[in-house]
Structure formats: structure tokens, C-alpha cells
């Protein structure tokens, strides 16, 4: 199948696929960040049960294979009377996995700040809230631009799990499987989706690098 024939027959599928991938990535990433902040707050809190729960959360979701988690959410949860839409299943899976890594990024961002700077802020008479707002959070955010850029790409790649459940419309990976089970799309059928991912990743990391260069903290 040539390119024009492929696009003529399945062009709409690819376009929908790209938009679905982008859409799920964007929605997931917003929640990934929110949940990562929450889990990180738990992990640095002085309350031992919250610390333990936060640490356990991260260990579970950074070590579980994405497919295993998706299958549990999509196929095991209904047996426990928790039924989610297919699309929601994929997004929830992505959020759980992504937020564990996001929290790890925040933790290492926090750890690049020297304890001395926190003591200096304390000595100036800044309150706990002021120290967080003026010293800890700005530095943690600025040092995590690159890791979070990579995480955004990882979140996009994780949404390919959507090919393992019947989505409508399908995302980019699902489209390849769809096209190739109907016609012999050949390498082109694969390349269109692959380029959709690779070019998006390229743009994300280009923007991320630009932002990082602007906000990077000299040490």
C-alpha cells in the first residue's frame, strides 16, 4: 500500500489517533503533576504513616509493569464493582505510573537544595511557609525542568497502553494494529504513527531544553 492510498483510506484514523494520544497525554500529565506534588508532600511530611504510605506508593507504581496495572484496572476492578470507561482506565494507569516518577523527580529536586540554605532562611526569620514558597519550591521546580520534560515524553509513550483495550477513537499505536489487521499497510503504516510519536517527543524536548537553559540554577 502506498502512502496516498494509506492516507486516503485511513487518514482520519491516524489523525484521530494523534489527537487521542495528545489528548490523553495532556490530561494525564496535569493529574500526574498534581498527584506527584501530593505524594511528595506526604513523603516529606513529619507524619510517619503518611511518609510510609507515600514511599510505598512510589515503590509500587514505579516498579509495576504498565500492562499489568492496566489489566488490573480494566479487567480486575470490575470484579470488585469498580467499572471505568476504557479511556479512563488508560488515563488512570498513566497517571498512577507517571506520578510515582514525578514524585521521584521532585524528591531529587528538593535534595539538590543544600540544608544550609534552609538554615540560612530560618536564621533570617522566615516562617516554614515562607521558606517553602521562597527557597524550596522555586529551586525544586527550576531543577526539575529537564526530568519533567522526560517524564512528559514517558507519559505520552505510556498512553500507547491504550492499544491493549478497545478505545474509540484509538490512539496512535492502536491505529497501527487496526490498519495492519485489515490491510497490508507495510512499514509505512508503522512509520506514520512512529513519526507522530517521535516528532512530538522532539518538540517536547526542544521546548524543555530551551526552558531549562533559561531557568537553570548556577551552582
Amino acid at each position: 500500500m502506498g502512502l496516498s492510498e494509506l492516507l486516503g483510506t485511513y487518514g482520519q484514523n491516524y489523525l484521530d489517533g494523534l489527537l487521542t494520544t495528545w489528548g490523553m497525554t495532556a490530561v494525564s500529565f496535569v493529574f500526574v503533576m498534581a498527584l506527584a506534588v501530593l505524594v511528595t508532600v506526604m513523603r516529606v511530611s513529619p507524619l510517619a504513616p503518611l511518609r510510609a504510605a507515600g514511599d510505598l506508593y512510589v515503590q509500587v507504581f514505579r516498579n509495576i509493569p504498565g500492562v499489568a496495572l492496566l489489566i488490573i484496572i480494566a479487567y480486575a476492578l470490575p470484579s470488585l464493582r469498580v467499572v471505568l470507561e476504557w479511556r479512563t482506565c488508560v488515563i488512570v494507569t498513566t497517571i498512577l505510573l507517571g506520578s510515582a516518577f514525578g514524585s521521584e523527580n521532585f524528591m531529587s529536586g528538593i535534595n539538590t537544595i543544600s540544608v544550609g540554605q534552609i538554615e540560612a532562611a530560618r536564621s533570617l526569620g522566615l516562617t516554614f511557609g515562607q521558606i517553602l514558597r521562597r527557597v524550596v519550591i522555586p529551586q525544586a521546580l527550576r531543577t526539575t525542568v529537564l526530568p519533567m520534560t522526560n517524564l512528559l515524553i514517558a507519559v505520552m509513550l505510556t498512553t500507547a497502553l491504550g492499544s491493549q483495550v478497545p478505545l474509540d477513537p484509538q490512539e496512535l499505536t492502536g491505529v497501527v494494529s487496526y490498519v495492519n489487521t485489515r490491510s497490508t499497510g507495510g512499514i509505512l503504516a508503522f512509520l506514520i504513527s512512529a513519526l507522530g510519536y517521535a516528532l512530538t517527543a522532539f518538540v517536547i524536548s526542544f521546548v524543555g531544553n530551551r526552558v531549562d537553559r533559561r531557568v537553570r540554577i548556577l551552582r
Binding site: 540554605q117 538554615e119 530560618r122 533570617l124 526569620g125 522566615l126 529551586q139 548556577l218 551552582r219
Partner: peptide
């Protein structure tokens, strides 16, 4: 609490490692 912060504000502290805010 705030009482401690207020008291600290009245005492200056200079550290071995300077501890300037790097950002």
C-alpha cells in the same frame, strides 16, 4: 512558631558555607 521566627530575625547568622540562596 512565629515567636521563634521573630527572635531569629533579630539575630544574624553567618555560616561557614555562606549559604546564599543559589536561585
Amino acid at each position: 512558631g512565629r515567636e521563634l521566627a521573630r527572635m531569629r530575625a533579630e539575630l544574624g547568622m553567618v555560616f561557614q558555607q555562606f549559604n546564599l540562596f543559589s536561585h
